[in-house]
Each structure stands twice: as C-alpha cells, then as structure tokens.
C-alpha cells in the first residue's frame, strides 16, 4: 500500500548563526493508511516540531513532506487547502486551544460553514450535534451552548477533537492529546480516538512522552523513538517494548515509573554515564547519545552519525554497536 504520509530527510533549524538549534535532523518515515504511529521522546527531542511540520503548521528548513504521494510544497493553492483540511492537529492544552468567548456551537459550526461542509446554518447545527455524539459529549443538546470554561479538561479535549473532525480529516496529529486530562478519564478519550480510526478511517500520528500510553494506543501499530532531533529506533510496538535495541530506548523503558509495585522493583536499572541531557545548542559529535551511553565505544560512536538500519526483528535502529543485543528489562 502507498503511504498516506511520508517525510524524507525532514530538518528544522531555529535561530541563526551561533545560536542555531537543530530541532529536527534528517528524519524520514512513512505511515500507511489506517496505521497508528506513536512518536515518543523526552522534551526537546523534536517530536512536536515534527508533528507541526507534518500538519503544515511549520515549514521545514529542508526535506520533504509527502501527503498521499504528493510533495506538499508542489501543491497548487487548492491542493494545499485540501491537504490542510485532510491533516488536522489536536493540541495538548484544551484550555488554550479553544476560544473562550465562543460557545461550542460557534466553535463547531464556523469551520463547517467556512469549508462548505454543510449547506446552511441549520445543516451546520445538525452536523455539530452529530459530532458531539461522535466524541461522546452527550446529551449533545445540553453541551452545544456551553462555553469552554463550563467544561472539564476532558470535555474540552473532546470539543477539540470534534472541531478537528468538522473538516473530515484523513490524518490526525495528536500532540500530547491526553497529557493534561485526569488519569481516570484518559482512557475514555483514547478509546474514542481509537474508534475514529475504525469509524472514519483516520490515520493517527500520536505524539507523547508517555511510553505506557504509546504502548496502549499503538499496540498493533508502531512506535518511533526520537532523541535530540533524530530517530534512534522504530518498529512494531510489541517488538519495541519487549526487545528494544537502542541503548537510549532501553534507558527510557527501564526508567519509566511503573504503576505496579512488583514491576517497579524488578526493573533493570540502567546507569547512564551522564545524567543530564546535552544542550541542543551544543550537540555531541557522532551519535548524540554517546556521552551518556553505557556501551560507548571511543573512536566509533563519537566519530560518525550512526545510520538508521533495518533490524531483523522488525523496524530500524541507529546503533551499529548494539543492534544485535537483546537486553531483558526485568531482572
């Protein structure tokens, strides 16, 4: 199947001269229609910047974004508009992403009318009510006249999802979409998003720092791990979390606090050589993980940037030194 979305050597630099920061460095991946891909990594790894470039909100410094096989830079204005509708983004903070002076009705009907998705105001209202049902904000008639401040965080995030759905997207970038929602409600939002996959054939790029959530949401999909602007490993979720090959992925998985006392005390403790993450302004040479990596090979890791190579167990890894080593995460 042809990928619905592909990025090739995507790079984003911010600032100029000595102050240049390379937030995303030659990132390449492809996503098939219907697939769920999670982009994970710590703050500053470039996952959100990548998401924003994919959604067309940020122009890459170099590299390409291809949507349905077409380079988005080469689209005519009508084509670009279609792409912008087809790819929607859901932001982390539902307190900031909704206009506080508008009711849910206005928030949902404006894009429906603007993009001619409905014939008239009555049609827009009917569709808005339908969408509220889709995102489980019921009874929809009670919800539609509320202002954002009358809604809980979880309910606001549902409104943000409904708004994204007004333009019938094929691809949704969910950037930390449940991070600000209470634990007890998170799962229902994830379940709702998963249902959209089936119901509307939406493909997801799910961006999160939470590996447990990534595992749950993309159980049959893939996880891509980023570190300081580069992809260090990707692969089918079940392989990546049971048999991570990149020392950074291993460090991350072993560091995640577990909501299970037995697992919490049986986790392998991986000692990094350096606890602090390097500054993006002064990146280490070669593999950027080398100053912290417990398997550092002098003369090798600090000399050249390791290529992202296919793995026999599925996916890719950027570590020629450790790519064949299985490290159990529990002891």
């Amino acid at each position: 199947m042809a990928p619905i979305l592909e990025v090739r050597n995507l790079t984003k630099k911010f600032g100029k001269g000595k102050e240049t920061v390379t937030a995303v460095d030659s990132v390449s991946f492809a996503i098939e229609p219907g697939e769920t891909v999670c982009l994970v990594g710590e703050s500053g790894c470039g996952k959100s910047t990548t998401g924003r470039m994919v959604a067309g909100l940020l122009e890459p410094t170099s590299g390409e974004v291809l949507f349905e096989g077409k380079n988005i830079k080469e689209l005519d204005s009508a084509g670009f508009r279609r792409y912008r509708q087809s790819v929607q983004i859901i932001h982390q903070d539902p307190y900031a992403s909704l206009n506080p002076t508008q009711t849910v009705r206005q928030i949902l009907t404006a894009p429906l009318l603007r993009h001619n998705k409905v014939k008239n105001r009555a049609g827009a209202e009917a569709r808005a009510l339908e969408l509220l049902e889709v995102v489980d904000l019921t009874p929809a008639r009670d919800m539609i006249d509320k202002y954002p401040h009358q809604l809980s965080g979880g309910q606001r995030q549902r409104v943000a999802v409904a708004r994204a759905l007004t333009v019938e997207p094929k691809f949704i970038v969910a950037d930390e979409a449940v991070s600000m929602v209470d634990v007890s409600i998170r799962v229902s939002i994830l379940t709702m998003l998963a249902r959209l996959k089936e119901q509307f054939h939406v493909t997801f790029l799910f961006i999160t720092h939470d590996l447990a959530l990534a595992k749950y949401f993309a159980w049959t999909g893939r996880i891509t791990v980023m570190y300081l602007g580069r992809i260090v490993e990707d692969g089918p979720t079940q392989r990546l979390i049971t048999d991570p090959r990149h020392p950074y992925t291993q460090a991350l998985l072993s560091a995640v606090p577990e909501a299970d006392p037995e697992l919490a005390h049986r986790k392998r403790q991986i000692e990094l050589r350096e606890a602090e993450i390097p500054s993006l302004l002064n990146l280490p040479s070669g593999c950027t993980f080398h100053p912290r990596c417990p398997y550092f090979v002098p003369g090798e890791c600090d000399q050249r940037v390791p290529p992202l190579e296919p793995l026999d167990v599925g996916g890719r890894v950027a570590c020629p030194v450790r790519k064949h080593e299985h490290v159990p995460l529990l002891v």
Binding site: V183, S184, T191, Y216, L253, E258, L263
Partner: peptide, 17 residues
Amino acid sequence: LIRAVPTVTGGFEQLFS
C-alpha cells in the same frame, strides 16, 4: 484508577475509564 493506567513492561491489558 488501577484499571485506567497502563504499564510499560507488563502485559497488554484492556483499560477502562
């Protein structure tokens, strides 16, 4: 609460809100 929270190294479990 426990049924709403996934683990990483544990098995896959259906979660509920």
